[in-house]
Amino acid sequence: MAEPNTATANDDPHGIRQDVDNPATLILVFVVLIGLALANIGISGAMGPTKLTLPLQLAIASVQAGLVAYYFMHLRQGDKVVILTALSSLFWMGILFVLFLADYLTRHMVVG
């Protein structure tokens, strides 16, 4: 196999450096996560138990989970198999919720 001849490739022949996280990015993401957590707590106190509270809090939590998966769990650098694996876990969670709801949403229905 021909040797890579660019200066960058010689310097980082296995492409390791591009997979290393930038500390500034990680710290920024961490700060955002803490901010979202505080926002979640704040919403709980400010809004009280309204119809919108839970969906809003779940939406914030989903953004947090997404950030953790993308940056801290390195999906950002993952190949197709890794991303497919992550998506499959979401699919499985979907199975859990959909079939749960098949029970909870129809339990009040009277047979016949």
């Binding site: 098949a102 129809t106 339990r107």
Partner: peptide, 22 residues
């Protein structure tokens, strides 16, 4: 195997329609 767990719960008080599905 992930789609059929509630057959353990047919007499636990789950929805009749869910029981049919499972």
């Amino acid at each position: 195997g992930f789609l059929l767990w509630a057959h353990h719960m047919f007499v636990a008080g789950i929805s009749f329609y869910a029981a049919l599905l499972f």
